[in-house]
Computed example of a mutant assay.
Amino acid sequence: MTDSTVGFVLGTRPEIIKLAPVIQECHRRGVDTHIVHTGQHYSDSLDAVFFRQLGLSPPDVNLEVGSDDHGAQTGAMLAGIEEELQATEPTVVFVQGDTNSTLAGALAGSKMDVDVAHVEAGLRSFDDEMPEETNRVIIDHIAEYLFPPTAETAALLRDEGIPEDRITVTGNTIVDAVETFDNEAATSSQILSELGVSEGQFDLLTAHRAETVDDREAFERILSGVARASAQAEREVIYPIHPRAEDRLEEFGIAVPDQIRLIEPLDFFDFLRLESTADLVFTDSGGVQEETSILGTPCVTLRYGTERPETAFVGANCVAGREPSSITAAATQMRGKAGDWNTPFGDGTAAVQILDAIPELPDREAVTAPE
């Protein structure tokens, strides 16, 4: 092993999936890692199973922060992460995306003079009402190493005055993960038979964001629009429901349309299998927009904007908003697309490029060169 220890701070399903290629590349290079799980997602169905399927060891520590108001949650994370960084003194600490876990990890590293590396930097929705937008901007401006997935996101960083020498375009590590595990998911997952559905004969829905499900009228309009759009194509909708959304359905007394079948949250392989075989995917998730564009499945985004505009530029995604008529129109536009667009997020070597860009760590050629 090298003398370096690399820290990772993560707390949600997307962070686990997108940091897994970087963690695995560290191991290939003989670099020690220390993984801090904040506990932002705190059910086995939302995180622990992903470590197992991605071939990762359990995190070195789980802070078990759980859900709370933004300030209380972030503060608790910050205190716990700081303690871990003091104990391990990593060369660099990696964070990914835009969650409160990501913000807390970046702040802790910055306060302790540990270099912060931000995977998936530069994304902007230009919607200041999204708490994630505030997180993204703060993280990017305190990180030492910024890894935007595309030239467009790199340009946004430059426009904000971030120095060029901190920016390295690498593609997105989700391409690494999907290309690595899509075939395995197709072989091992039995989700299609378990649900009694056939490839291309169902639609998939994900909806969990606060602005989607915490507003009763918005949630009802989305469910109505998705059900109407799928009924027109004679497709059933499979909806793996997030605990937050399930709580809101009960709290608001919302009647779910018959066209939509609620199921429990899925592990990575099962969800990847549904994404790759659905006729159409409806989502409010940025990560799902990315994954469907890589898999060649057309997507309708249930928001009024996106920080992944590249998916729309290549024709993989249509941003529909939350009105039923707009959702049905977008579904008509997207359904049946061949999925032959070019993946906008790189060639699946993002993790290699990310570690090669950090001079304190050994590059791949040095590790793999014959003696």
Rank of each mutant, 00 (worst) to 15 (best):
G55I: 11
P59K: 10
D60L: 10
D60W: 06
V61F: 06
V61E: 03
N62L: 00
N62H: 01
E64T: 06
V65I: 15
S67E: 12
S67A: 15
S67I: 06
D68W: 10
D68V: 07
D69I: 12
D69R: 13
H70E: 11
A72H: 14
A72T: 14
Q73S: 14
T74V: 13
G75T: 03
A76L: 14
L78Q: 05
G80L: 04
I81T: 07
I81C: 04
E82G: 09
E83Y: 05
E84N: 07
E84W: 00
T88Q: 14
T88Y: 00
T88P: 00
E89Q: 15
V92K: 08
V92G: 08
V92M: 07
F94L: 02
V95M: 02
Q96S: 02
G97Q: 08
T99P: 02
L103D: 04
A104M: 12
A104S: 15
G105I: 00
G105H: 01
G105R: 02
A106G: 14
A106F: 07
L107Y: 02
K111S: 10
M112A: 14
D113N: 15
D113Y: 06
V114R: 05
D115N: 13
V116E: 08
A117P: 09
H118D: 06
V119Y: 10
L123Q: 07
R124K: 12
R124M: 08
S125M: 06
F126I: 01
F126L: 11
D127P: 04
D127T: 12
D128P: 00
M130S: 09
P131N: 10
E132A: 09
E132Y: 03
E133L: 08
T134M: 14
T134I: 14
N135Q: 06
N135I: 04
N135W: 08
N135H: 12
N135Y: 08
R136F: 09
R136A: 09
R136Y: 09
I138L: 15
I138T: 12
I138D: 03
I139L: 05
D140S: 15
H141M: 06
I142W: 07
I142M: 13
A143M: 13
Y145L: 04
L146Q: 06
